[in-house]
Amino acid sequence: MPTGFEEKRKIFLGYRKMREKKSSFTPLGDRLHLLFDGGKIEHLFRDVCSKDPLHFPDYQKTLVQLKLKTNANDALITGVGSVDGIRAAAAQLDKHFLMGSMSSAVGERLTQLVEYADKKKLPLIIISASGGARMQEGMYSLFQMAKTSVAVQRFKDHGGLYISVLTHPTTGGVSASFAMLGDIILAEPGALIGFAGPRVIEQTIGEKLPKGFQSAEFQQEHGFVDAIVPKEEMKTAIAKLLRLHGYKGGPA
């Protein structure tokens, strides 16, 4: 055990306690609370954390501050719960933690959840909001695109149902991997969904993009989204889809 390890840990926990008393954490995973009956989520894999593979300047500082602010270890909240009495595995990639960017921890937690759903034969729901790759983790982040796609594909090959929910914004490496691989793809109204960001596209083509370009509605018009559902109605829609796939709720 390196010197100072325990000391630093104690300091962190001390500050967390102080914060618990003083103010509330920025809660992550609001869509999961809306989705699960009674807002109840049984957290899974929350202890998987990214280190700092590139020793990137200030990355540790940013992470430790965000952990203190949100009381979460990374941008992805994973767990199981009931949707209208139907057991389901679900995850939410939350933009309030480094823009929901894909770190090693996000990729690993997501993969563990997909494998868990596969093993337990649970339907899988992933709600995304993300700017894409976690730059501070370099190639490790890029390879999470492959890792998560590979896991989702295997889950689908085994007969599992995967519902992907796109919220504002879902772009880059997340939209170009697991988020676009749902058997069913739902989106919230007005959400920005695309591969390249609008500014990058405008710089490349040298013109302004029309209003509504890359919106959820645009994506539906082009055939990439099954239905647009407001967040208040998402639970009802998902429960209906689960029943249409033969899932039945147990006793409430």
Binding site: E7, C49, S50, D52
Partner: peptide, 22 residues
């Protein structure tokens, strides 16, 4: 592909404490 990841730290409130000065 399953095992492409940067080093991961298993404990809840822990991470690479070595990388950050006290």
């Amino acid at each position: 592909y399953r095992h492409f990841e940067g080093e991961l730290e298993p404990d809840y409130a822990d991470f690479n404490w070595d990388a950050i000065e006290l």
